[in-house]
Design a protein around this nucleic acid. Structure first.
Lengths: 198, 198, 198, 198
DNA sequence: CATGAATGAGTTTTCATTCAT
DNA sequence: CATGAATGAAAACTCATTCAT
């Protein structure tokens, strides 16, 4: 493809962001050198500066990219009518896998990002949006008789999300994976039973 | 105190470690400059190097210090006979407070540390020890009829710990504190009911 | 030359090593600052680190470079069929010149290097190789009737080398150059007569 | 001994100089830290500054001390009537021993010192004085018929001194000690024969 | 006087960013 | 546009020297 067409630029940015996501996730912001990213993309450092003003800007684009991916994932859980599927080892496994590969599953990226006010807001916003969609969807499930009419779905949802984050972080600190999985299965089962009919 | 007495050295180290704990927790490892710590202690950079060989060594001593503090705290929960007290907003508040002060409650420190094998082991060891003491203590509570005979205390414990970590991290990413507190109260209540008699 | 061609890198390294050789030889390892070398090359400190990992590594490359140069020089003496030429003021002068320029003719560099085991071995190895080639060459000269059949060439060679080093160091400590030259002429003449026929 | 008496001060200085001589000789000027010397003497760093204005001043006093010792040694050789004793392995051995212990037998100290003009002069002066005394003494030996009337004693002397320095430095760079000894024996014998009657 | 904790100037080293080729 | 050599500002670390105790 001729390099001058505008599509090229977008493709190039995407490539760099993905390489950046990988590098940042693996090593954290400060451990990752511009050279690392450049090498991963297969271009020179200078080329990156053609597309991104600075390391920091690239970092924020990477965060945005990761948030965007996670958002979709979170949504798919919410909108699944088979809530109990959440309480399965398989479900947790897809997350665990990422953790095992990346050590810190990007948690430190979020910590890094959380020092930036704009990003705190962005993260909060995404969580809030998920939450709102959940609540909306829950109304439907209540009507359908799947969820108890008086169940506080929001609380349970927050609990499950926190449980996920806590367990994943424990794994990245060296906890036994099968312990984490079992905990996930059991605890989510308890929590979901609390809101599901029957 | 005269500086020549041997106790002085230990006191000085402790002072530096505490200042380091504060600085590292607030800004993370890389953002924290030796000068920051020195200024916080009120000495010159050089003075710190009299007590710690390098920034990294100081960092590890800080981690050790934090782990040690947390260990005691975790134990006090375990050994409390009034388990339901855990499921209180007040209990969670003591943790939250630290989070609000320190932004990321040291989670990123642990991520940093988790890239060091020795530390991963140390963290795992501390968790394991807490876990073992809990199980031991649970036998007692089962005998006394406080906990159900067939309850899987370990799983519930792991769930609560993960919940705590997940909620605290959500707060540090900007989640609403009162939401977190409420989630803590409700979810721990559900989980503890699962194992408590009555 | 365009900087992107691969030869450039090698040329740059060579330039730095030569500047380093000059600076280290003149001032010794510790007195020489990276800035001195950078200034001599006409670049910034940072540039040097693109080619050499550390000051120490550069130092070792410099030593290697000097050893390599000296090796060639030593060989040329050995392989000259006119051994008596060694016993000339002119021959010694070429060495003296270097000394006058460089104060300590790199002797302190070798002392510095001699604290490193790898380098002690390297130096010994080079000397040994020269020695071996000499002995081999001497066999030829004996056959040709230039050197006495029963002469202990090795001893005389070692004596001459030691004399050279001792005289050069005396000059660098302030001894009179013409005294050193005369000593060289007379003493090498005595020693060479010992092994030459006639 | 009460510390206030003036003899104490002198004794203390001497103790420090000797420890300094040992430390400097072993590690060179820059590798030797004031702390090393203080520890060797068994006092605090501060105490050294009571007696010596600076590290550099102490260094120069150490050099002076070493020069003074060597001067005596050199003299004893000159004034010995049995010149052939010089050409013995035993004679060389006393020097070798010091080298083996100290790696660089202070040569680097002299190089360090040689960057200081006052010291260059001091060293030259000591050598000159030895030289003069030798020449004077040689007149006597010529009269006694021990040395050839027309022998250039000065040249031979300079040759022997250079040989000594060169051989010792070769040993400190890793040369075989017995090779050096043999070279010493043979070469000095050749040179002394040149001036001795018979 | 002796001590050794503290100082701070001086060095090495790192790395995001720039810019000549 | 791409390259990667060079920059230079920023940090970590060292150690002779000082000075309060």
């Amino acid at each position: 493809m001729p390099k001058v067409v505008p599509e090229y630029k977008e493709k190039a940015m995407r490539t760099i962001i993905e390489a950046g996501a990988y590098a940042f996730t693996e090593k954290g912001y400060h451990q990752t050198k511009m050279d690392d990213i450049a090498k991963k993309v297969g271009v020179s450092k200078g080329a990156i500066y053609q597309y991104f003003k600075s390391k920091e800007q690239l970092f924020f684009e990477v965060i945005e990219f990761i948030l965007e991916s996670q958002k979709d994932e979170v949504m798919s859980i919410i909108l699944s009518n088979d809530l109990m599927r959440i309480a399965s080892a398989e479900f947790f496994e897809t997350k665990i896998e990422r953790v095992s590969q990346t050590r810190a599953f990007g948690l430190d990226l979020f910590i890094e990002a959380s020092r930036n006010d704009a990003f705190r807001e962005r993260i909060t916003e995404i969580y809030q949006k998920s939450y709102d969609e959940l609540i909306e969807h829950a109304k439907d499930l209540k009507k359908k008789g799947i969820i108890k009419k008086n169940a506080d779905v929001g609380i349970i949802w927050r609990g499950i999300v926190a449980l996920r984050d806590g367990l994943l972080s424990s794994v990245s600190f060296g906890a036994d994976v099968s312990d984490a999985k079992k905990t996930w299965e059991e605890v989510t089962t308890i929590l979901l039973k609390e809101i599901l009919v029957e």
